[in-house]
Simulated assay, not measured.
Amino acid sequence: MGNLEKNQSELEVKINNLGTELRSNFSYTNSKLDEQRQVFNIVSEKFKKVEMDINAIMSR
Rank of each mutant, 00 (worst) to 15 (best):
G2D: 12
G2R: 08
N3W: 05
N3L: 14
L4Q: 10
L4W: 03
E5N: 13
E5G: 12
K6G: 01
K6C: 03
N7K: 08
Q8Y: 02
S9I: 05
S9K: 05
E10T: 06
E10R: 09
E10M: 11
L11R: 05
E12K: 07
E12Q: 11
V13L: 12
K14F: 05
N16W: 08
N16A: 15
N17R: 07
T20Q: 13
R23E: 07
R23K: 14
S24H: 15
N25W: 06
F26I: 15
F26Y: 14
S27E: 08
K32H: 03
D34W: 04
E35D: 08
E35L: 09
R37P: 00
R37V: 12
Q38C: 07
Q38E: 13
V39E: 11
V39P: 01
F40A: 13
F40N: 14
F40R: 09
N41M: 04
N41P: 00
N41A: 06
N41D: 04
I42V: 08
I42P: 00
V43S: 01
S44R: 08
E45F: 02
K46F: 01
K46E: 12
K46T: 08
F47T: 07
K49F: 02
E51I: 00
M52W: 01
D53M: 02
D53N: 10
D53S: 03
I54A: 03
I54H: 00
N55A: 09
N55T: 03
A56E: 10
A56D: 07
A56N: 06
A56I: 03
A56H: 04
I57V: 14
I57Y: 13
I57R: 09
R60D: 03
